[in-house]
Design a protein around this nucleic acid. Structure first.
Lengths: 220, 220
DNA sequence: TTAAAATTTTAGATTTGTCTAAAATAATTT
DNA sequence: AAATTATTTTAGACAAATCTAAAATTTTAA
């Protein structure tokens, strides 16, 4: 089934407001979406008709199984585009959200499959959030800052916290970027600096401070 | 000024229907867009209000300068996305149009600037059509099939006509793709085969038949 | 436990973008 | 040049997605 951009925004928002068990209420969704409660009620009726929602008047609502599935498809598209915007177009991770909000509504399945492939099937987006796979499963990967990552383990860089010009310059110089295959060869206790190896790059040393800002997860 | 996807589709369609001087008429635009004449008239009024159109009731219409400028911005986005879909995601050139129709309405200027950069500022889209530059100028580049391209000249592959599996397999093998920097080193009169050089690839020989299906333009 | 406050829904309006059917205008034909 | 045909516009309707204001319902508090 196809949904309008507006319907998709509601679905996504309900998904992020509902926890494991709680119901969402009209006002909080209205607040989240910057809309009036009346508009939300209207849309709830539509989503209920489309069988995405459990909704009892006056008592709140939450997505049912197909609603959750649809939400995950949208989130997948959003996060894959964010990954693209940061890693390929060099946008800053705190500025990609608005653009990804538009791109996520482009609905071709083939496009998303190919984009995923092109990006190397990333598991984590540039904010450090997991990217649901094609079946809607959220990968559970624990990310740690590089200074806490085991020696000699193969890791993948998932996100980089500090956005300073200086940090970016250094990462660029060492060829470190989101998605990079990385390994810590040696840790120097004296100053906490690390000798690291990035695939297809010569080994190099980075400071403890830098390492604390680079997040990685296990490759497999 | 920002325009809705619908308005953008009308603008683009008028642009492609209007020649250098002719006026466009309601029915032909309605036919082109698969809509009814009445709907077209409605939109013409809106576009006139927004000062994109010269329009005299019952006597046809055409884009004015700002209308043309806007059309070129939309076409630029469309063609850049087509280039991306073919060269980066490996979609076939005859299948990218529908997806690009959606992507073209994503309106961030920064996005398009970065996409252009990322793609290497391509001048020609995968159908062989020129991509307007950031100022709305259409590059005028004559494209010739490789068998008609001068020896030792630096060229860029703009499009590939035959879409057979076999052709694609061969192009892939030789590392030839849209955007490739190419040079014809030698032409063998005996069978029309060519020795060519692709940047960062060893020289190789391709048949006359292959050369006839590869289109190139001068690199500067 | 009932009155007040908060929340949610309904009713009705608005905008955008489309439609059909009828009216207006232009073009063509006899 | 009048009649017929074709084209275009207008008038009025409809669906989607929003809004405001009022009514309905639930929650809170006196």
């Amino acid at each position: 089934m196809k949904f309008s951009a507006s319907e998709e925004n509601y679905i996504k928002s309900i998904y992020s407001l509902q926890g494991k068990t709680e119901k969402v209420n009209t006002n909080s969704l209205a607040g989240y979406l910057n809309m009036r409660a009346a508009s939300v009620t209207d849309m709830l009726k539509r989503l209920k008709t489309k069988k995405l929602l459990e909704y009892k008047k006056y008592y709140g609502f939450r997505l049912n199984d197909s609603g959750n599935k649809e939400a995950l498809r949208i989130i997948r598209r959003h996060r894959l585009w964010e990954f693209f915007l940061v890693t390929r177009l060099g946008m800053e991770w705190d500025k990609v959200h608005i653009v990804a909000e538009e791109l996520e509504h482009v609905s071709s399945n083939d496009l998303i499959k190919r984009l995923d492939n092109f990006l190397g099937k990333p598991k984590i987006d540039p904010h450090g959030d997991p990217i649901p796979d094609a079946n809607g499963r959220m990968p559970v990967l624990k990310q740690v800052s590089l200074d806490n990552f085991s020696l000699k383990k193969n890791g993948i860089v998932s996100s980089v916290k500090s956005q300073t010009q200086q940090m970016m310059e250094m990462l660029n110089h060492y060829g470190i970027s989101i998605g990079s295959h990385i390994k810590v060869l040696k840790a120097f206790d004296f100053d906490g600096s690390l000798q690291i190896k990035i695939l297809k790059q010569p080994a190099c040393i980075i400071s403890e401070q830098a390492a604390q800002n680079i997040f990685v997860y296990d490759d497999q």
